Amino acid sequence: MVRYHNFDIVFAEIPDETTLAINITNCPNRCPGCHSPHLQRDGGERLDAEALQGLLDRYGRSVTCVCFMGGDAAPHEIARLAETVRRNCPALRTAWYSGRERLPEGFDLTRFDYIKLGPWIEALGPLTAPTTNQRLYRIAPDGTMSDITARFRRNR
């Protein structure tokens, strides 16, 4: 079962998107220096299709994307929730922030428009750092992954 701690409307997680970011709990990754250690606990509100639809009904007209922030303990459930977004709100794009280095076996990435992969490694920095190990991919309808991480870096 997937649970979430909270959610917010954000502007920096996915380039050019106004995003409903849902913070998923029960993170198994335990990255040293994690900025959200409270998300490692298995707590919060249940996030199933009905609860997600409630969020979509409330905020769906205010956003262009829904991003599941975490969910590595149940990636196939996250993919099913993304399918709920696609089916019920086809104008919205879907995203998943994973701390995994690779996608899990049998994972249907075509349910997403964006996927971020990579554990948090404090010394390498966030997506905005040129040294980051994390990557944000744009997913084409055929499943092709294009690395768009550079979109986070500002020219100075």
Results as ranks from 00 to 15, higher is better:
M1W: 15
R3W: 10
Y4L: 10
Y4T: 08
Y4D: 10
N6M: 13
I9K: 08
I9N: 07
I9D: 01
F11E: 04
F11C: 09
A12N: 15
I14A: 08
D16C: 12
E17I: 09
C27H: 01
C27S: 04
P28N: 01
R30L: 02
C31T: 00
C31K: 00
P32C: 05
G33H: 01
C34H: 01
H35W: 05
H35L: 09
P37M: 01
P37Y: 00
D42K: 02
L52V: 01
Q53W: 14
Q53A: 15
R58D: 02
S62M: 13
C65M: 08
C65D: 13
M69N: 15
G70F: 04
G70V: 05
D72N: 05
D72R: 04
D72P: 02
A73H: 12
A74V: 11
P75E: 03
P75K: 10
H76E: 02
E77T: 10
E77M: 06
A82D: 09
T84M: 10
C89Q: 11
C89A: 15
P90D: 03
P90M: 07
A91T: 10
W96F: 09
Y97K: 03
L103P: 04
E105M: 11
G106L: 07
D108L: 11
L109A: 15
T110A: 08
F112Q: 06
D113K: 03
Y114E: 01
Y114A: 06
K116G: 10
L117K: 02
G118D: 01
G118F: 01
P119Q: 02
E122V: 07
P126G: 10
A129H: 00
A129T: 12
P130G: 08
T131K: 11
N133G: 11
Q134V: 04
L136I: 03
L136M: 05
R138G: 05
P141M: 05
M145G: 12
I148D: 07
T149C: 08
R153H: 04
N155K: 15
N155W: 15
R156S: 14
